[in-house]
């Protein structure tokens, strides 16, 4: 179920699969280590940081900045989905890995 979700959001899409992989890993890193590695594209990096750490601070102008950099609505949709999925799935997987070792 969760693996199918990960495969879907990192699989076929409108946006660059490598970029989606980078977004997934960036958010996963933040969940696992509290730190993140920057993505090359600055507007996307700033947006994904917000999405990962405090999504309630996202504003219209964050979307406008992405569109000004040439991202289409479908690309923004996908990259947002990937980042949010990484935030939820990585928390669950980290918890599960510890739980499975508990006596």
């Amino acid at each position: 179920m969760i693996q199918a979700l990960k495969q879907a959001v990192l699989g076929k899409g409108h946006s660059d699969p490598e970029l989606r992989q980078q977004v997934y890993e960036k958010v996963s890193d933040q969940v696992l280590t509290g730190d993140t590695t920057p993505i090359i594209a600055p507007a996307l990096n700033s947006y994904i940081d917000k999405l990962s750490k405090h999504a309630y601070k996202i504003l219209d102008r964050d979307f406008e900045a992405l569109q000004a950099e040439g991202y289409s609505e479908d690309e923004i949709f996908e990259l947002t989905i990937v980042g949010a999925t990484a935030a939820g799935v990585t928390r669950f997987e980290k918890g599960l890995s510890i739980l499975q070792k508990l006596k």
Partner: peptide, 17 residues
């Protein structure tokens, strides 16, 4: 933990979109 996982996804989508 499943509850935490699904809400950490949908909370972000609700605020981003």
């Amino acid at each position: 933990m499943h509850v935490c996982g699904v809400f950490c996804v949908i909370n972000r989508l609700a605020d981003a979109f």
